Amino acid sequence: MAKHGIFPYLQLTRPANVITAIADIWAGFAIAGAWDYMATNWIYGDQQFWQNLLWLSLSTIGLYAGGVAFNDIADAELDAIERPERPIPSGRASKSHAMIMSTLLLVFGIVCAFQVNHVAGFLASAVALCAVLYDYWGKHQRILGPINMGLCRSGNLLLGISVAPEVLQKIWPIALIPLIYVAAITMISRGEVHGKNRKALFAGGMMYASIFLAIFGMAYLESPGYLQVIPFLGLLGYMIFPPLAKAIRTQEPKFIGKSVKAAVISLIIVNASIAAAFSGWPIGIIVLLLLPISLWLAKKFAVT
């Protein structure tokens, strides 16, 4: 690790993507009503709220960073052929050191979640298991692979909601939203190397559209001010559909990759939209503040 420093190992963790995972937690808090509770009980609930938010934010950092680093470890031999510039095949990062780092990150994520409650701890364990399963098996499965990847993200959103286990029991089907969205990204991303996946691109676009309908429907059911979610959905559409349209038109790996990158970063906007649907536009804005941080990191580190 000393030879090349810490930077190659940071590259393995995809820092820009990690910020999108934090957005899952913050949106989960909105679904659980934690933001609203903190606002109305700021004297009694303030300290506990921030402690739980910190623990689960740290948890998702460990889970996501460890999971994506294991992805590069699992792909090291293939990357040596298709993406030799990546840290492990280029020799800038040791595979054995990366494995130790990834394992410690996953364990850290699980331990942090248990500081909130046992439900959160078990959910974090399930997310870690899903991530490693995808890295070594799921990504090679045409249908189950995208579902496996989507389950990682679904578990992450549920991890945020687990701050209020009684709410989680009632509203867990909301996890279908990140599952569908991330499954679409995973399906589209298979054209990043060779291109020519128009059917997958069209299918992904339809799945994205279903997310818009689901979030707007939730906002309509949850809040009389449901129209406040429209600006967030408008921003989401602006971010994901133009790159997708260009990828469909050109069928070139470069533009498919840009479409995937835009969709991954836009997970923050998906979460901001969900937060706005449940807790109003101010909380949506708070989640959206993570976007410029992720965009800045995306200029420094690879997203895919």
Rank of each mutant, 00 (worst) to 15 (best):
Q228D: 14
P224K: 09
Y208S: 05
G195F: 03
I177W: 04
A209D: 08
S223I: 07
I211V: 13
S189N: 03
P173W: 04
H194R: 15
H194F: 14
Y220H: 10
I174P: 00
A219F: 03
L176Q: 14
K196M: 12
S189T: 08
R190V: 13
T186Q: 09
M207S: 14
Q169I: 12
A184D: 04
F212K: 04
I177S: 03
A200H: 14
K170V: 11
S189A: 11
L179S: 00
A203Q: 14
G205P: 01
S210N: 10
K199P: 05
A214P: 07
A214H: 06
L227F: 13
G205F: 02
G225K: 10
A209R: 09
N197D: 07
T186L: 08
S210R: 08
A203T: 15
G191C: 06
K196V: 09
P224A: 08
A209Y: 10
H194K: 15
I180A: 01
A200W: 15
S189M: 05
L221M: 12
Q228A: 12
K196A: 13
G205Q: 00
V193G: 11
L221T: 10
Y220V: 08
I188D: 02
A183K: 01
K196P: 07
S210V: 11
A175S: 06
G191A: 08
L176M: 15
A175V: 03
Y220S: 07
L179D: 01
